[in-house]
Design a protein around this nucleic acid. Sequence first.
DNA 1: CAGTAACCGAGACGGTACGTCAAGTCTTTCT
DNA 2: AGAAAGACTTGACGTACCGTCTCGGTTACTG
Lengths: 186, 186, 186, 186
Amino acid sequence: MNPRSVRAHNDVLAATIALLDEGGLPAATVDAISARSGVSKATIYKHWPNRTAVAAEAFGRRMADAMPLPDTGNARDDLAEQVRRVSAFYAGRHGLVFAQLLAATVADPEAAPFFRQFFLDGRRQAVAVLWDRALARGEVKSSVTVETAIDLLFGPLIFRLLTGHAPLTVAEADAIAAAALTGLLA
Amino acid sequence: MNPRSVRAHNDVLAATIALLDEGGLPAATVDAISARSGVSKATIYKHWPNRTAVAAEAFGRRMADAMPLPDTGNARDDLAEQVRRVSAFYAGRHGLVFAQLLAATVADPEAAPFFRQFFLDGRRQAVAVLWDRALARGEVKSSVTVETAIDLLFGPLIFRLLTGHAPLTVAEADAIAAAALTGLLA
Amino acid sequence: MNPRSVRAHNDVLAATIALLDEGGLPAATVDAISARSGVSKATIYKHWPNRTAVAAEAFGRRMADAMPLPDTGNARDDLAEQVRRVSAFYAGRHGLVFAQLLAATVADPEAAPFFRQFFLDGRRQAVAVLWDRALARGEVKSSVTVETAIDLLFGPLIFRLLTGHAPLTVAEADAIAAAALTGLLA
Amino acid sequence: MNPRSVRAHNDVLAATIALLDEGGLPAATVDAISARSGVSKATIYKHWPNRTAVAAEAFGRRMADAMPLPDTGNARDDLAEQVRRVSAFYAGRHGLVFAQLLAATVADPEAAPFFRQFFLDGRRQAVAVLWDRALARGEVKSSVTVETAIDLLFGPLIFRLLTGHAPLTVAEADAIAAAALTGLLA
DNA sequence: CAGTAACCGAGACGGTACGTCAAGTCTTTCT
DNA sequence: AGAAAGACTTGACGTACCGTCTCGGTTACTG
């Protein structure tokens, strides 16, 4: 890959992250990204199909390393802790950006793959590790797929994040995790 | 309330529903709604803060009667059936509009109350009826709040609807319902 | 005339004058006049054809008494003094409103008669008195009509007021009056 | 300057002139100009602060060449002829547009510089040439400034144009010119 | 002095244009 | 030749004010 391209790519992502931090997704205008990064709009559109894709990659890339997996040696505690952490993340200052990004993805299907690739897949895999570990130990029902487990554990959080119909406190997260785990543990 | 206002209000909602059906949320432009309904833009903006709110009310109002509650006389079956129905709705031709609306609500917090009022609240109450009925019969855990139950049952569906990371088939809906209900039933 | 109508009429004019003073013609919105006066918009439109007419009558009525005629016993001085006074008026805090009103009259021919009736005619007549007095004394050329005299004396002021291409100081007014009077005096 | 910008600029002015001819200033809507010229509204607003400015430049630019200077070799005749020409212009089919433009300029101070630059300045300079020529020949009073002369000669015409209180016939123009020139000639 | 007709206040509505914004495309110019 | 710069089109936004209209309730004239 052309080193100039690499440079441009990175500059764009860095600028985008900065803008997302400052004003959320609405602030991450293509013009703003271009101005901040010094990379021209035309070039940006050569690397990504649209602005949502840029934001998805930028934000997802950063989140990748931001959330280490718990390892208490016990499936229930591992998963419950993970739910708690994700809930805290959603409730924290980056939660809104995540929600905005997810929302933008709906309105703009072309960006969905980027969101999945750079954001969902990584986190999904992380949880899959926990799940497989638990499965190996026989702590969880083998009849339940990882997919179902993940949706059951994190779907409720997403639901709350998006609609804001109920708070995302630690207590709430624990209640959700507890109920969900009853259906998942062996 | 002024009969002229009532008339205008209804005309707008009718036009909006038609547009949503034809082209989803992106088609429900305020200009288009105005043109189709014969109600002026200024008037629309006197009744609603922005276009998302209009769409939310229009769509929510219609959905209200579109989904009758199951009553099999048995909590497990009632709730599982409801999950199946909601899943089918999401998977059907109105699912996309619902997703778009939910997404728009995130980008436009001013419209959120409308979405909640005309869409979530009604459905939430419907399920609450099921839940209370089950609670009265002692079929579900009294330690679990309705809120948690609802999120656990429907959050996963919403999650899938939005990210499209997994299908919304009947089988999937049943798997989710089964797992969730294990954590909810007494 | 119905006393209620008289009341409404006066209230509207009073409110309009207040608004003109506060924010010039742009502030004298029909809505604002209605709100301030307590007279409904419908009623206002029963009395006047449009908002410019209202403003013209309001402003003109007030100006009528605001400018007494000079009487030095000498045509040259009378007329020069009048030019000076009108110039000062235009340069003063009401000048802008006058200009705005005159301008509005162009864009809205329906209001022109009101402007003429309540504003120009009165002032024109006032100067005509001076002119006739001078004519009787043989101080001015009988070959010049009052119309021409008036235009020559005050047209330049209006020109400057509208375009702002030159100041409206006392010195300038005197220079104009001096030059014009050379062509008018016998 | 970017050739694309030049193109857009010219196209806008051409479309505006056409619209002014067809329906006067009220027809020169920004939307109409945009549609007619094929230049987008956004671009128009990058070149001009508002629609009045566009109209002023368009109209003024055209007028520049439309009125050649008289040169009879005699100040009195030159100036009288110029007054007659300007009067005829005001009375003609473009007079209304000029008046509307002048009026719009009052209501919209942001456009005033455009009006002055593209309209007044040019014509003012033209007359200044006449004046200087006459001054050099000693035909006019050196005590009178060009400004005063111009205002005295053309102010009355503007006054009549705007208020319509008196006609703008050739005879009237001559009467005004005659009276004014008496005050201006040596 | 009662009844009717004219008038009014309140305020919503249709219409027209405004000026703004961001997305994504396309041209020109520089390196 | 390829990227940067940046101007352009498109399409919608939300706002402002105009002048019209409907409604319900008062006021003033009239028989």
